[in-house]
Design a protein around this nucleic acid. Structure first.
Length: 534
RNA sequence: GUCCCGUUCGUCUAGCCAGGUCAGGACACCGGGUUUUCAUCCCGGCAACAGGGGUUCGAAUCCCCUACGGGACGCCA
């Protein structure tokens, strides 16, 4: 099973002299010769993200174009944050979009298992081998020492980097510490001199000084590998030919190239795609933009329009067609056509495209079916009916009462949101709620209720008074169906965006939180409510 | 702060690799037409090669510098 670790004899050249030129030649030859296998490697630590879908789309298109396969691998080496819940959601969300993989934890394949936590043996064997070859070493430094070191380096305007403290430990000292049961991590050795040159399919040669590269931890004290080690070991074992991933990885690619070299393996071809951006050009983040795939599903977007839109972020078909399917994209896909400037995710254009799908791509009957599968179905109506029934006099009261549960977001006036309270105070409460809601594990009525009840106590307010602005934020009215049930039905993605919209309305009215105000609120929040999550 | 990556209309982009068209299309916006309203649809308009230097008869395109933007610098991925 661990035969892959041996490295084939023709890979020897990687162990000895390893000039940049050689590496580049090898990269080129690799492009021509190998069966194409790409992968998408999400970490199951949160809600399914559009960035994941974006990368998956181009990995799939590339694989399809070249008659290859795309693999889905779950990167769950962070035991503290990974959840099965998140894993299931990611798979489900990608499938909703119509993205399919040839091998993965759900459908199996020849190169399994497809969950990194189940490949621990391989990772540890690779670490062991690096240790034996002298390419890696144990480090006993405490987090406190590392923290102090980092602070000092930042203060001295140096690049934060491990100082090699444990490199000088003798064999006896190491043994002694291990016998005492001192926790340790394993770090990779990085050349002190020279530069790493690697080839990026889209950018050509990239050169980074080894001085810039940290002695990266490859195995944590819990015995789990870090991303850097695990992704190299798994990509090699799964025979990944092309690593197509986000630009954020460029600066750690030297670590990966070095690991391939030290293990005597041939590296894959690297292609770093641009990152999706917020309207302010920063990396797409949920604080500024809906980033959850489920947001778009729940707000009534069509999966094929969504995928089509992602396909036009950074890419144009040769004939500049703007409506196209995954199949059409894959047929003509040319990775070199990717443009490298980070595209801003523009919901207005997505909406226009989605509208075109209704008008041109699917029949009116089909639209009716989509609508019914979405929210106009018995199951969903029944859930709402439980809340609406006591408030109904005629059937026609139902839709006005529940309209906000079918909208992307309701409309209301900022002054109504503020009401008789202070605008700044409303901002404050909305922000605290936003943070508190991050802590919810299961988005249901009970947990939502307890968040707000807790808040009322902390703020020494009547629940009724606390909730008033939230009724507006969520339903657009002071009179509505019960708040917690409504939020539960809307789901976390839609609900959170509504709170953010309310916050934005206040700041547009000049009553939002300033940067300073936000900072002090955060401090106050931490001391009263505890640490923030997310 | 250090390093890396990037930069064509407000936004998504074509053109760049193989220098030579009024720098093309789409969204948004503005105006007009069709439509009982609105939307759709059609027509028109606005609007960009970040700046500077070089190479060249000729530069959005090739080279260099600057500026700006982004990313990375975790026992996260």
């Amino acid at each position: 099973m661990l035969g892959f670790l041996q490295g084939k004899s023709n890979d020897r050249r990687f162990c000895s002299s390893f000039s940049p030129e050689k590496l580049i030649r090898l990269c080129y030859s690799r492009i021509m010769s190998t069966a194409v296998r790409t992968r998408i490697a999400p970490s199951p630590t949160g809600a399914p993200h559009v960035g994941t879908a974006y990368m998956a789309l181009f990995n799939l298109a590339f694989a399809r174009k070249h008659g290859g396969k795309m693999i889905l691998r779950i990167e769950d080496t962070d035991q503290a944050r990974s959840t099965k819940n998140s894993e299931d959601a990611i798979l489900d969300a990608l499938k909703w979009l119509g993205l399919e993989w040839d091998e993965g934890p759900d459908c199996g394949g020849e190169y399994g298992p497809y969950r990194q936590s189940e490949r621990l043996e391989m990772h540890q064997a690779a670490v062991q081998r690096l240790l034996e070859l002298g390419h890696a070493y144990r480090c006993f430094c405490t987090p406190e020492r590392l923290d102090a070191l980092r602070k000092e380096q930042i203060a001295n305007k140096e690049t934060p980097r491990y100082d090699g403290h444990c490199l000088s430990l003798s064999q006896e000292q190491i043994q002694e510490k291990m016998d005492r049961g001192e926790p340790y991590v394993i770090r990779m050795k990085v050349p002190a001199e020279g530069e790493c040159v690697f080839l990026d399919e889209l950018r050509g040669e990239v050169r980074i000084d080894w001085k810039q590269i940290d002695h990266q931890i490859i195995q944590k004290s819990d015995g789990f590998p870090t991303y850097h080690l695990a992704n190299v070991v798994d990509d090699h074992a799964m025979q990944i030919s092309h690593v197509i991933r986000g630009e954020e990885w460029i600066s750690s690619t030297p670590k990966h190239v070095l690991l391939y070299q030290q293990l005597g393996w041939e590296p894959p071809v690297f292609a770093h795609l641009p990152l999706l951006r917020n309207p302010d050009k920063s990396k797409l983040s949920k604080r500024k933009n809906p980033t959850g795939i489920y947001y778009y599903r729940d707000a009534g977007f069509l999966p094929e329009a969504m995928l089509n839109y992602l396909g036009m972020m950074g890419y144009t078909l040769p004939d500049q067609r703007e409506v196209f399917s995954l199949t059409e994209l894959a047929e003509s896909f040319e990775i070199k056509r990717m443009s490298l400037g980070g595209p801003i995710f523009d919901i207005a254009k997505l909406k226009w495209l989605n509208g075109r799908y209704f008008r041109e791509q699917i029949s009116p009957d089909e639209v009716v079916d989509r609508l019914m599968n979405w929210k106009a179905n018995k199951e969903h109506f029944s859930k709402i009916m439980g809340l609406a029934l006591p408030r109904l006099e005629t059937l026609s009261d139902f839709f006005p009462l529940s309209g906000h549960l079918f909208q992307e977001s309701p409309e209301y006036k900022t002054e109504d949101l503020i009401g008789k309270s202070e605008a700044a105070e409303v901002s404050r409460l909305l922000k605290i709620a936003e943070w508190e809601l991050e802590k919810i594990k299961h988005w249901d009525r009970e947990q939502l209720a307890s968040v707000f009840q807790n808040m009322a106590e902390m703020e020494e307010m009547k629940l009724k008074d606390l909730l008033r602005p939230f009724f507006f934020a969520i339903s657009g009215s002071a009179v509505s169906l019960p708040l917690f049930d409504g939020m539960a039905l809307l789901g976390p993605d839609l609900s959170r965006v509504r709170l953010r919209i309310a916050l934005n309305k206040l700041s547009e009215a000049g009553s939002g939180l300033s940067k300073k105000g936000l900072k002090s609120l955060e401090k106050e929040y931490r001391s009263a409510y505890g640490k923030r999550i997310g």
